[in-house]
Design a binder for these strands. Structure first.
Lengths: 340, 340
DNA sequence: CTGAAAGCGCTTACAG
DNA sequence: CTGAAAGCGCTTACAG
């Protein structure tokens, strides 16, 4: 079905010049006379000539395609990152192939391979939560620039873009302490989760700096954090002998689960128990009370990551090195922790 | 930086056979002896040979890449469609290039052109709301198969996948009437919006079939429907002499805006005023009361659309024809319209 | 059963 | 200032 498309050959024939000349004229090569350039370009425009990117890329070992791998494309935060990455890529003449790993390590491995096979110029990836084996990623890194974002891994020596998880988390807890909370619980994931660990260490740091005790009963670790787990773990926390007066759930989803449970028991938020989340997802203003959380600038993360990647594609360096870039995020204080 | 990759040539040299033979052996061509196939395939595996898809595609005038154009990639419904489309495409050996038109007609036009230039094998698109000029799409359609989904246009003779908007909307209104509502308002968009019009006609149809009057005061049309507009328009409806006893907002976002306003005025939902939306977005269970809405099976829409597209790519037909496919959606009754 | 050769559309070092 | 030729990695009709 693909119809005939104008080629250099046809232009050359119509104008009685060589293909080389047409190619140069179209690429504005300095050698070509203005006159020739002019007539070539006019005809090209008239015949709607578009270069065959793949012939070109094939020739130059470049496809102008960048692969993006994300664990779950339905997450709002992810889509804002993708949007930023797309904008940046398109403005520089690149196209983006997207794939979803569904948090499945096997699928992720397959993605890296097919991306390589499809000849992408570089890969932007956020890893699945449980990425243990990174051998194939290291192997890929030998062939292509890779930039990681959000879910990164310090086992991979490449550029990694994250937000200031630890600092933001510290600020959240600091805020809770400042409004008088003294018994702050956290709902987090295990040490396999990069982001969770960072947020947890921000939590610990804040408590320590305020000389507050760390009560193991107030530290809840779940396998896979979610709204459901938030609900469940709020129940667990409420059944403690000494209840918390604030709960930090390391994702908005879980924080919303917590709020739902607290509301069920008619617990006043934030007076009896304050709740804070992380992400500033679009849910955070739908829920009542509106959620205090950390605003993660997704588009900026996406743009920044793509910028670094394209830069590495354009200026290949021999030695691959780790580089950690933190994007600043800010806490957004709302009714779930503070009533004006 | 792109490193050396194993090629047919290298395999041929190493095995002392011709490139043709290697190519055939790898493609399991019946002419080749089992013995040869075996030794070629073994070495290929050992050297980690992956075919260069672009050389192949270039040769065969096929890229195995499909372009997907969506108005806004951050919409949850859109992401579920994309997920379905990705799954289907990947299972058939295709990759997907995604681009966002940001509901901008100029950008959309550019997308179609660069997709063409990048040599995609087909395009899957959801159009921007205000697509008037479709000339360039018709021109593209001459070169490539196009399948439209969600935001479609009957001005373009191609396969179009939507949900049963009219029917679903009819069912919603029917439900409201059955629970005793008699004064049902609708918040919709103008006639430039395909989906809005369909939903509106379902509304009218239901009223008519129940012999209910259509009160123009109960029909609110906004330019661009959103949560904010939902809030605003709920205020307008509340200031009417005769208030509605149910409000149908044609998107969940707007319905949530309506609920927020009603709650502000302490109006009982659903007793005084019931609220229904459309989409079954993830917000619909976050809001209190949970929202009655229409579940749109996004993944199925995506899978179906991609299936049709790939089918058209594989079996090109000479004459392009319109084909309308409706995916069934179901209403989900929740607290905002019915208290058990 | 295997190979030599042409060609997909483009760029570019070389020659003039 | 312009052209002829090689080559990117692959497939396939043709020949043997």
């Amino acid at each position: 079905m693909k119809k005939e498309v104008t080629t250099l050959k046809q232009l050359a024939k119509a104008l009685n010049v060589s293909i080389s000349t047409v190619s140069r004229a179209l690429n504005d090569h300095p050698d070509i006379s203005l006159e020739t350039k002019d007539k070539v370009q006019k005809l090209a425009a008239k015949l709607n000539y578009v270069p065959n990117i793949f012939a070109k890329g094939f020739r130059q070992h470049k496809t102008n395609i960048i692969g993006v791998i994300v664990p779950n494309i339905t997450h709002y935060f992810t889509t804002t990152i993708v949007r930023g990455a797309l904008e940046e890529a398109e403005s520089k003449g690149y196209r983006v192939i997207i794939s979803e790993s569904n948090n499945n390590v096997e699928k992720q491995k397959e993605m890296f391979n097919t991306m390589l096979q499809f000849g992408v110029d570089g890969i932007l990836a956020s890893l699945t939560k449980r990425t243990r084996n990174v051998d194939y990623i290291l192997a890929t890194l030998n062939n292509l620039p890779i930039v990681l974002f959000d879910k990164v891994s310090n086992k991979i020596p490449c550029t990694q873009i994250t937000i200031n998880d630890e600092e933001a988390s510290y600020n959240l807890i600091d805020h809770l302490i400042n409004i008088g909370k003294t018994r702050i619980a956290i709902i987090k994931e295990g040490e396999y989760s990069y982001n969770s660990e960072k947020r947890f260490s921000g939590y610990l740091k804040a408590l320590k700096e305020h000389n507050m005790d760390v009560d193991p009963k107030m530290i809840i670790t779940v396998e896979d954090i979610s709204l459901q787990e938030g609900k469940r773990m709020a129940n667990v926390l409420l059944s403690a002998k000494e209840k918390p007066d604030a709960i930090f759930a390391i994702t908005d989803g879980a924080a919303i689960g917590v709020i739902k449970t607290l509301k069920k028991f008619n617990i006043k938020i934030p007076e009896e128990i304050a709740v804070v989340g992380f992400s500033n997802s679009s849910y955070s203003t739908i829920i009542d009370p509106k959620l205090t959380t950390v605003d993660q600038p997704g588009e900026k993360i996406g743009r920044t990551a793509m910028k670094y990647l394209i830069d590495e594609i354009d200026n290949p360096e021999e030695n691959i090195t780790s580089k950690f870039v933190e994007i600043k995020s800010n806490i957004v204080i709302r009714d779930s922790s503070f009533k004006a």
